[in-house]
Nucleic acid binder design. Structure first.
Lengths: 304, 304
DNA sequence: TATGCTATTCCTGAAAATGGAATAAATGGG
DNA sequence: CCCATTTATTCCATTTTCAGGAATAGCATA
């Protein structure tokens, strides 16, 4: 048996055409198909829709009534595909996730022109420093530093993210600026807690060397707070470029151990791969891609 | 790609269930099917309906909106099959065709009790002495004397229809009652015109013998008029039993040549075979079948 | 850390739909 | 008056599609 949808659709065409042959040509199918569909529908309904003879067909009184309802239901159903497919301009929700530090600094200025150009776009920002999937479930676009392992995301590296060991000039004046990794151990240091597992991130250096401070002067789980502490002269910290850059430029922070710098990480933009990408998401995605890639657009610089 | 109907139906279930697995069990299909349907629908729409990861799904804002419309369209569509299938009591049109002579005499009295019992039944009587298909196109039940050749009808013989050669007593008193077929030629006779081809029906006799009157006293195309003419003493006529019977009984007509009587024809009831038979048509069909078959129900007799 | 569960992809056997050829009957023209 | 043409229909073989089992990936929970 054919599926009900097609049965009804064929019936409606036949009712309008007045002949099975005409209906067949209109639908681009064979006349047998029309016969079959109508027969199936009649069996399903327990009522005849057409009176027939070998030469012509003529719609039943019942069929005429039925055609009205069928046409209406069919139209209703088709709007599910038509009116929803045509997006009436770019509008709707776009869920974006990013680490707090990046989101606060860059997302708003980057998105502002887009919001002005497309007032019906609704941005839903979920600033999280970790990739928690429960939250990401409502995410259309994500920004992360590091590697996107999940292959169900399509990810793209936008910019390198160097890490600097920094402190404020006054602290450096008090202590001896370190020349080697060993010298670090004697200085007040900060460590960042990985929210995922509650463990401290090790400091990273060239050639894959890592260093775990024994007695850190500061432990916290927020990079921005870590930055504040270094600015306040509390400690030395290993800070990503996008946080340190403006302060290095203004002289509020000074970088040390530059020749032990680790290989920079990457800033990634990503989005769920499965399913199609709507116009509005594509728009925001491309815009952010360009904004984060183009050094001229970074008011405060982002590495390199 | 699946058909749209199923796609939307599966999506609605998934939206309500909140999990593809649950949706699959509710629908009695496999989880793969749910995945496939949702993916197809998303491709069709150009929008994601669910945010997913390997472990769970979560409906999109767009998906939530869409589910409302989809559910509504689905319900609308399903009423096409539900509300139309359940016949709210026996009601609606029943098209019946019969020869004039039979229709006038029997159909109304036979149908009267049915009309009283089912006030919503609408009888559409089309009295025609020939099987013209253009008219029959709107016929649910037919009554005919003779053979139903068309195999797309299901026909059933109800009663034999003998033919009598009759005249009124006064005419028989004037002329010599015929003892053989040859004697007929000298008498005033009537012939009936076959409306189908405009030709006279030959008189029929035993062993397949036929007789075509050369100079008929009356030519007409209506059996009832032919009967009137014989009652008025205008001519001898070969009249079917259901017309002649009451007058034979009352003595207004007398039968002759009884030993040359042809094999009786049959009274048939028939209905279109294709498509299902609705309850109301079945009811009327069965009722008429019984009414025409049961001799006790014939107030005026119908042969044998 | 290990186990279980869920979504997903791939693949193969099974089911269904599709259209060609043939049949039946009615219409229209020579 | 008969024959060719047209239309609905049935039968059948081919092709397409569908459906679920097995396997994979990744998240969640104990």
């Amino acid at each position: 048996m054919l599926n009900r949808m097609e049965m009804v659709r064929i019936f409606c065409t036949a009712a309008e055409a007045g002949s099975f042959r005409e209906a067949a040509t209109r639908l681009g199918i064979s006349p047998q198909g029309v016969t079959r569909a109508i027969q199936a529908l009649e069996t399903e309904l327990g009522e005849s829709l057409f009176h027939r003879n070998t030469r012509q067909v003529s719609i039943t009184a019942f069929g005429q009534d039925y055609a009205k309802d069928a046409r209406s239901a069919l139209d209703h159903f088709d709007t599910l595909f038509r009116s929803h497919r045509t997006e009436p301009e770019l509008s709707g929700r776009v869920g974006i996730t990013a680490p707090h530090a990046i989101g606060r600094r860059f997302l708003i200025p980057f998105l502002q022109p887009l919001a002005a150009a497309h007032p019906d776009l609704q941005f839903d920002l979920r600033l999280e420093d970790q990739m928690t999937d429960a939250v990401e479930a409502h995410i259309d676009i994500g920004i992360r530093v590091g590697v996107i392992r999940d292959r169900r995301y399509v990810a793209r590296a936008l910019a390198p993210v160097p890490f600097y060991v920094v402190a404020c000039p006054s602290l450096i004046g008090q202590k001896t600026p370190p020349e080697s990794l060993d010298a670090l151990a004697k200085l007040p240091l900060s460590v960042l807690i990985d929210r995922k597992n509650g463990r401290p991130w090790p400091w990273l250096f060239a050639d894959g060397q890592t260093f775990a401070p024994r007695q850190p002067a500061l432990i916290c789980d927020d990079p921005d707070t870590e930055l504040e502490a270094t600015l306040a002269g509390m400690c030395f910290g290993q800070i990503p470029a996008y946080l340190a850059e403006p302060h290095l430029r203004s002289g509020k922070l000074v970088a040390v151990l530059a020749d032990h710098a680790p290989a920079p990480w990457d800033l990634f933009i990503y989005r769920p791969q499965q399913g199609p990408v709507s116009k509005r998401v594509r728009l925001v995605y491309d815009h952010l891609k360009q904004a984060f890639s183009n050094p001229k657009l970074f008011p405060q610089g982002l590495g390199t």
